[in-house]
């Protein structure tokens, strides 16, 4: 360990408004915030029943009609409104993404901070566990968990959370290793602070930035993984709408109804790209090395 001087530079706390302002001034951050806003509006509309149609209601005589004033994004083979189904699918995706990232952050982040701070056998065991989870390709692991535990949005969230937990573990552990040796932590020890107080009040705020950056990026991956699982028929089950399932149905009907493939595909790409940009923007704002 080199004797690098690490100063106590916690997150810009208490200035959350300025934080969002800086994000808004960042080009990536702005695009990401706009996309997030659109997604949240769509999800809220679905949650509070403000959609033009019931997403499950079939209008047989209007089956497979293209985008029009009546049905903005067209209808599917049963005459169900694609826009309403998309918004409901976004709600399902966001719910799973938020819950899974929350679980992964709590479990992986806390385990990583603890492993880095205490070291020793805790660190070795947790690190080896993370390696094992890492050795599975993400989709394969999620598939295996869903097959074992059953289907449903809660289990999908757990499956995605397990996949991303080791990432949060590593992201949290790394910076703790250097902060642990910093002068302000040693000073705290000399002052007789307990481990818990040091960990929560002095170490955690100083390693929060990489974790927050990771949260933004993980949201984008979680949406990607969720839609992949439902595309494979292992996520949200029909007739409930989900983005991945809509793509799978749309591709067989592409020659008759292009909008059935194009609309959900665009929604997924928009969500994944947008949240990815949000992650980049958050990194630009939070990472001191990138601050111009």
């Amino acid at each position: 360990m080199t004797a690098a001087v690490i100063e106590e530079t916690p997150l810009p706390s208490g200035t959350s408004r300025r934080w969002v302002q800086r994000l808004w001034k960042n080009r990536n951050g702005k695009t990401g915030l706009v996309v997030l806003f659109v997604l949240v509006v769509a999800a809220l509309a679905a949650a509070f029943g403000l959609l033009p149609y019931d997403p499950l209601e079939a209008h047989q005589k209007d089956a497979l009609t293209g985008p029009s004033a009546e049905y903005l994004f067209g209808t599917d083979q049963f005459g169900r409104d694609v826009l309403s189904r998309l918004a409901t699918g976004v709600l399902a995706s966001l719910r799973i993404a938020l819950l899974s990232v929350l679980m992964a952050t709590l479990v992986g982040g806390l385990a990583g901070v603890a492993a880095g701070f205490f070291g020793g056998w805790v660190d070795r065991v947790a690190g080896r566990l993370a390696d094992v989870v890492f050795a599975f390709p993400a989709i394969l692991l999620a598939l295996a968990i869903i097959t074992a535990l059953g289907r449903g949005w809660l289990i999908t969230s757990v499956a995605i959370a397990v996949v991303y937990t080791p990432i949060f573990f590593r992201v949290a552990r790394g910076p703790v290793l250097s902060v642990r040796e910093a002068d302000f932590v040693k000073a705290g020890r000399v002052l007789g602070y307990g481990s818990l107080r040091l960990l929560l009040k002095h170490v955690l705020p100083n390693v929060a930035a990489p974790i927050i950056i990771q949260i933004a990026l993980a949201l984008s991956w979680a949406i990607l993984t969720e839609s992949t699982l439902s595309f494979l028929g292992l996520g949200t089950q029909p007739p409930d709408p989900s983005l991945g399932l809509m793509v799978n149905e749309g591709r067989t009907l592409f020659t008759q109804a292009w909008w059935l493939l194009v609309m959900p595909s665009s929604a997924i790409v928009l969500a994944v790209v947008g949240l990815n940009l949000l992650g980049d923007g958050v990194r630009d704002v939070l990472d001191p090395r990138r601050r111009g």
């Binding site: 984008s220 494979l232 793509v247 591709r251 020659t255 493939l261 790409v269 994944v272 790209v273 990815n276």
Partner: peptide, 22 residues
């Protein structure tokens, strides 16, 4: 690179198949 990271495999695959068949 943004599109490469943002377009999921299954979306691109479905798009290519739809295009080729149409």
């Amino acid at each position: 690179s943004l599109l490469g990271l943002g377009i999921p495999n299954f979306v691109l695959a479905s798009g290519i198949i739809a295009f080729l068949s149409a």
